[in-house]
Write a protein that binds this DNA or RNA. Sequence first.
DNA 1: TTTCTCACA
DNA 2: TGTGAGAA
Length: 344
Amino acid sequence: MRIKEVADKLGITPRAIRFYEQRGLVAPDKEAHNRYRDYADEDVWRLQTVIALREIGMPVEDVRRALDEIDRGDGEHLRYYLELQQAVMYAQWVELKRMIDTTERMIASADGARAPDREMIYALADGSRRLREARRNWYDRWNYDRQAPIHDSLVYGEHPDYPIYDRYEEALGLAFDWVQAAPGERGLDVGCGTGNLAGMFLSAGVRMSGIDQSREMLRRCRDKSPRLETKLGNFLAIPHADGTFDFAATSFAFHHLAGEQQLLALEEMRRVLKPRGRICIVDAMVPEEADGEWEAARRLRGTGSERHYARVSDMLRWFDENGYVTKHRRIGAMVHIVLAVPIR
DNA sequence: TTTCTCACA
DNA sequence: TGTGAGAA
């Protein structure tokens, strides 16, 4: 098949096809006498795949890598690429929604022909910047796999360097008790890691979904609890539709988010919850008045990645201001649990 | 028609 | 990430 024929069939220009060839995505045979490209069915199939992946915004270089994985028959990797891409699309979607919201408020506030609020203009500009960033370099910024190999030995074992996991099982158990999930409910575990908390709910007959930023964690998840639906996703852009879940729980994940991001994450959790949906957060937090015991534990912390412990008071205030009643308890030196239920 | 290269946004 | 133009 000649290039024009293929181009017409696929609805792209011959020029683009040659471009993809130049970037190593296809390599058709060439007719010996005139050097014309001759596309086999296999090549057309590849191009179709390229177009589909490009369509969802995957950069050409990543399409090339994905095709290599497919050639090696590695379905696992292809799945990862698709999940990664889906996560990016959700991130863009959430950002777009935010911008739509901002423009809506700008229009509403511009009734008196006043100049639009500067704050809103900045919010818009900021939004479009994040939108572009979500596209750029999506591979590197979504690579959270480092912790996965040691995760379970860390949380269940004795590790003086990680005092926040001192009473890990007790903390998870309490979260399970407090949420009081009924069989048949839908629950979300944000930052599910290897699925330890989600697993408890699953055993109780709850339909659980887990999201995590690390595909390696999710792979372990799927091995441990095949019934857990998992998605790769950012806490600030949860890859689920609005109003999906009866409750959202998160354990030992919140401190990975920087200060103001934690509030955005709470908003995100609320977005994917049904109207009466409850939220449960288990993590190390700074107590109302940071006491000696807490400071001592904090100093012990390992050399691992950055941590941003939320202030209990800030979190409780956010819930209060957003129409929740809360229940709070301190577990051990650093770890706290907060349950928030919407006021009807 | 097709190929290739250079320049362009 | 492609596209347009021009020569062969």
